[in-house]
Amino acid sequence: MIFNLIIYILLAIGVFFNLLAGVGLLRFPDVYTRLHAGTKCTTFGSIFICGSVILIGLRMWYTGSTDGSVLAIHTIFALVAILLTNPTGAHAIARAAHRSGVAPVRAVVDDLQNNTLKKEEEK
């Protein structure tokens, strides 16, 4: 009973943060700020969703089903893959956006701007 409650709470936290990422994508003005919402919130939400799946898997394992071990360990691998690839993908998108000339909206400072221009002049 309490175990189920913990799983539901973890799922709820995860779904809440993933929902927040969606709302952020709609509300923020440009690609960089949208990436802020799209990477941090989805990663954090996925940690909790994966956590609840791992708990379910561990309970299945504890009650004697070997399928539980498959579920738990594969979910841990999926979590590690999300943690590694999500920021890397965001970094690649941000870099590509800046190289193709998308300036950050309402920017106070842009150190990279001059630097990119310099590189193009050298070429």
Binding site: G24, P29, A107, V108, D110, N115
Partner: peptide, 13 residues
Amino acid sequence: RVITGKINPGIVK
């Protein structure tokens, strides 16, 4: 920031 919309962005080195 999603709820209030307050941002003050920039790229720093």
